[in-house]
C-alpha cells in the first residue's frame, strides 16, 4: 500500500518537474574542438577493440564529416557482432578485417547472402607468428628457430604446472586463427598447447614472464601496441608452402609451417551504396599505409590523445593523402 502511494506521489512530482522545465533547452551538438557541421543520416562505422581499428574509423569519420558533411557515428563493438550489424544495416562499414580469422564470415555474408560487400584492401598487412622474449634467444640462440624446440631439454625451459614435463605453448583468445596445435603435432615438438583464453590473459602472461625473466613461448602478431613495450623475437617456422595453404583450406590437420601474411581489408553493408553513394565511394578508396596508421596510433597509445583528436591532427597535416579518396 505504502509503496504504491509513494510511487504515485513521485510520478506526480516528475510530471510537475517536467512542466516546470518545459522551456529548458536541448543542446545536442557534440561541439568538440574543430568538429565539422554535419546533417543527414549518420554513417555508422564499427571500431573493434584495438587501436588500429579505432584509428581507421576516426580518420574516416573526420574526412567524411568535414568533406561530405555527413555525420559519422562510431560503434565500439565485438568483431563477430560487426558482421551481424553489417548484415542488417545497423553498421555501415568496418575498415579493418583480418582475413585469417573471418574466412567463414566472408563466405556466408559476402559470397552467399551478399548482404555485405568487400571494399578492397586497407593497405597494412599483418602477420601472426610464434614469439619468445629476446632474453630467451640471447641465452639460447638455438631457440630463434623451431628446430631449437625439438630438444626436449630446451623445450622444458618453458614448462609450467599446466604443461608438466613438456614446454608450454601459450595461445591467447580462441577467436583468433590458430594452427599451433597442428604445427606442434606435425613438427613433433615436445610442447603442450595451452589456451590462455583471452588477449588480456596472454598480455598478462607476457608481463609476468618479463617481470620474473622466465621463458614464455606464445602466439603473437604484428602490428600490436605491446610490440613496442617489450622485446619479443619471432621464432622462425618452416616457410609457407602450397601444401600448407591447401591443408588450411581442407582442414585436414596437416598444417606444418609458418602463418601467411594477412592483407587487411574493408567491408560495408550492401545497403550503404544506396544510402550514401558518396560515403560508399570514399570508403572504397580509403587506404592507409602501415606507417600512416602507426603515426595516428602512436598519438593515441603514446600521447594519450583520443582517437578523434589524433585523427583530426593527422588529417590536418596530411591533406594530400585523404584528398585522393574524394575524387
Amino acid at each position: 500500500m505504502r509503496t504504491s502511494g509513494t510511487k504515485r506521489v513521485l510520478f506526480a512530482g516528475v510530471a510537475i518537474a517536467s512542466l516546470l522545465a518545459a522551456c529548458g533547452s536541448d543542446d545536442t551538438s557534440g561541439g568538440g574542438s574543430g568538429a565539422c557541421t554535419t546533417k543527414g543520416d549518420a554513417i555508422k562505422l564499427a571500431a573493434n577493440p584495438w587501436t588500429g581499428s579505432a584509428v581507421n574509423a576516426a580518420v574516416a569519420k573526420r574526412v567524411i564529416e568535414c568533406n561530405l558533411g555527413t555525420p559519422v557515428e562510431i560503434v565500439e563493438i565485438d568483431e563477430n557482432a560487426t558482421w551481424v550489424g553489417m548484415d542488417d544495416g545497423s553498421i555501415d562499414a568496418v575498415l579493418e578485417i583480418w582475413p585469417s580469422g573471418h574466412a567463414a564470415d566472408k563466405a556466408t555474408y559476402i559470397e552467399e547472402k551478399k548482404s555485405v560487400v568487400d571494399l578492397g584492401l586497407l593497405g597494412p598487412s599483418a602477420k601472426i607468428g610464434w614469439y619468445v622474449p629476446k632474453f630467451v634467444v640471447d641465452e639460447h640462440p638455438e631457440l630463434a628457430t623451431f628446430e631449437g624446440f625439438k630438444d626436449p631439454e630446451l623445450a622444458k625451459l618453458f614448462a609450467t604446472a599446466e604443461s608438466g614435463d613438456l614446454g608450454q605453448f601459450t595461445m591467447g583468445d580462441p577467436s583468433y586463427v590458430t594452427y599451433d596445435e597442428q604445427i606442434i603435432a606435425n613438427l613433433e615438438l615436445p610442447l603442450k598447447y595451452v589456451v590462455a583464453g583471452s588477449e588480456a590473459a596472454l598480455l598478462t602472461s607476457i608481463d609476468k614472464a618479463f617481470a620474473d625473466k622466465t621463458p614464455i613461448l606464445l602466439q603473437f602478431w604484428q602490428p600490436h601496441w605491446k610490440q613496442s613495450k617489450v622485446e619479443l623475437v619471432e621464432v622462425k617456422l618452416p616457410e609457407v608452402t602450397q601444401a600448407c595453404t591447401d591443408s588450411a583450406a581442407s582442414a585436414d590437420g596437416g598444417y606444418a609451417c609458418d602463418y601467411p601474411v594477412d592483407e587487411l581489408y574493408k567491408a560495408a553493408s550492401a545497403g550503404l551504396e544506396t544510402k550514401n553513394a558518396a560515403a560508399f565511394a570514399l570508403l572504397s578508396k580509403l587506404q592507409l599505409t602501415t606507417d600512416q596508421q602507426n603515426e595516428v596510433a602512436a598519438m593515441v597509445d603514446g600521447e594519450g590523445k583520443t582517437a578523434d583528436e589524433a585523427a583530426a591532427a593527422w588529417a590536418d597535416a596530411n591533406k594530400d593523402v585523404w584528398s585522393a579518396w574524394l575524387g
Binding site: 604446472a161 599446466e162 601459450t170 590473459a201
Partner: peptide
C-alpha cells in the same frame, strides 16, 4: 582477470 593471471598464472 589481469591480477588473477598475474598472481596465479594462466591455467
Amino acid at each position: 582477470l589481469i591480477p588473477v593471471v598475474f598472481l596465479f598464472g594462466v591455467g
